[in-house]
């Protein structure tokens, strides 16, 4: 409205210096392990179908092509490099998500993403722990199943409780009319955010794994204790979600099915459908090597390093000042 522009950075000089040290640490970590740094477009031709990610459209006009999207993650481009035979790769890049602003979010943020051909989710979790604990000097994480975490802190069973039971549990936060259309996963997201997350990684960091198959995104799915679970993991440190990793789905047919299911869901929610990235699917058809990959929020990692509770404390210019 009538806010005065502020020219000064939001982060302290010490925080800015610590950011530079963190970047040097990350580059040293991967150099030592023979993982190659790559750069892929921040400005891509396609966005993502993911129902809960709103990309920021760009209005590019070049080579007879109109449009484009600021990337929400370098995932598809990096997987195209993997399919082309890159071997293990990592990238530090700026990514963009519309509407996300809060103490832990800025619409533009720094992402560290890396892929390890031949690794499964467990092996990559070990490497994530090496990196995070090496930098933060924290205890190594324990591993907790999503189901156990939700049962412990939200007192419902994410696999066994009926949608009705989940909704009733959510009435602590939402009015009955708001609950309509939230769906099973929406209820679980709410419980995860408000009942579970604040308790995660308090004593020591914790990996959450074994997500419901409906929340697999780009992870492969298998049976565990009779339930269909995703080979997906997240790391929480002091209640802060730090990364999201997969034992990657390599099946192009299944991948296309998930994209189409996303768009179907978008239609139901009145959100715009997103064009499917055919270059990415072609790369999968060519053959993505068996690999695990993970994306880690570098701004949040720096928050943990400095004990900051607001992402603005570690950003030179958060969006209001950008």
């Amino acid at each position: 409205m009538t806010d005065q522009p502020v020219w000064q950075p939001a982060a302290s000089q010490a925080a800015l210096e610590s950011r530079a040290q963190q970047l040097a640490f990350v580059r040293g970590f991967f150099a030592q392990r023979g993982v190659v740094e790559v750069e892929t477009p921040v400005l891509g031709r396609c966005g993502v179908t993911d129902v809960n990610l709103d990309g920021i459209p760009a209005q590019v006009s070049a080579s007879g092509i109109e449009g484009g999207w600021l990337q929400t993650s370098p995932e598809y481009h990096m997987k195209r490099l993997l399919a082309a035979g890159s071997g293990p790769i990592y990238q530090v890049s700026k990514v963009f998500r519309n509407g996300e602003r809060g103490r832990r979010h800025n619409p533009e943020f720094s992402m560290l993403e890396w892929y390890r051909p031949g690794f499964d989710d467990r092996e990559l979790m070990t490497e994530v722990a090496d990196l995070v604990c090496g930098w933060l000097g924290c205890e190594r994480p324990e591993v907790l199943y999503y189901r156990d975490a939700v049962k412990t802190w939200a007192h419902v069973d994410p696999f066994e409780s009926s949608e009705r039971e989940l909704m009733r549990r959510c009435e602590e936060w939402l009015e009955p009319e708001q609950l309509a259309g939230l769906g099973r996963d929406g209820c679980l997201d709410l419980l995860m955010s408000f009942a579970v997350e604040p308790n995660l990684g308090i004593e020591r960091p914790v990996f959450i794994t074994g997500y419901p198959a409906s929340q697999a995104s780009l992870a492969r799915v298998s049976e565990h204790q009779g339930y269909s679970v995703a080979h997906r993991f997240e790391l929480y440190v002091r209640g802060l979600e730090l990364c999201n990793g997969y034992w990657e789905l390599t099946d192009p047919v299944e991948q296309r099915r998930r994209f189409e299911a996303d768009n179907h869901q978008r239609r139901l929610l009145g959100k715009p459908e997103m064009p499917i990235d055919d270059a990415f699917l072609s790369a999968l058809e060519q053959g993505l090597p068996d690999c695990a990959g993970v994306a880690l929020g570098l701004d949040r990692l720096l928050m943990l390093k400095l004990g900051a509770t607001d992402i603005s404390d570690v950003l030179a210019f958060p969006f209001e000042r950008a």
């Binding site: 993911d50 809960n52 509407g99 996300e100 809060g102 997201d189 709410l190 995860m192 408000f194 995104s217």
Partner: peptide
């Protein structure tokens, strides 16, 4: 106004 969102999930405002 607190914005809350699990990385892959639905966003909420508290």
């Amino acid at each position: 106004n607190e914005f809350v969102k699990p990385g892959k999930g639905q966003a909420f405002n508290r």
